[in-house]
């Protein structure tokens, strides 16, 4: 097993290049990843993940939340970051940089995913 395979469950190895930037621990941190990302980075992550996210959710749903190993926890964080980046790519599109200026004023202070990590 090489390092890349251990990073994420094997079916999702294609997402490994995105772990370092996008697999952030808290909702606030994931929102921040979106804020500081550039258009190319968002597009690369979105395009790689969009078809895998439903499968990733099915994979994770098949296992109890508190039984995930580290690679599965990482996969969850990536999928949660996808929730943020999809808003940028699908809705705001070329206006995303402008929209990003207003968002940090809305400070995320709690999310269920943070409490039960």
């Amino acid at each position: 097993m090489n390092a890349t395979e251990r990073l994420l469950p094997a079916d999702f190895a294609a997402l490994a290049p995105f772990v370092e930037f996008w697999a952030a621990d808290t909702a606030a941190a994931r929102a921040h990843c979106r804020d500081i990302s550039d258009e190319a980075g968002r597009a690369a992550f979105y395009n790689a993940a969009v078809d895998l996210v439903p499968q990733a959710l099915a994979w994770l749903d098949a296992r109890p939340l508190n039984g995930w190993d580290e690679s599965e926890q990482r996969l969850m964080k990536l999928v949660l970051s996808f929730a943020h980046v999809a808003l940028a790519v699908e809705l705001h599109r070329e206006e995303e940089p402008q929209h990003a200026r207003n968002r940090p004023y809305m400070r995320i202070t709690r999310a269920p995913a943070d409490c039960e990590r």
Partner: peptide
């Protein structure tokens, strides 16, 4: 959160 799907739905709803 009941499962990963609910966690994802909740995160998206807030975002």
């Amino acid at each position: 959160d009941m499962n990963a799907s609910e966690r994802f739905g909740r995160e998206f709803s807030m975002a």
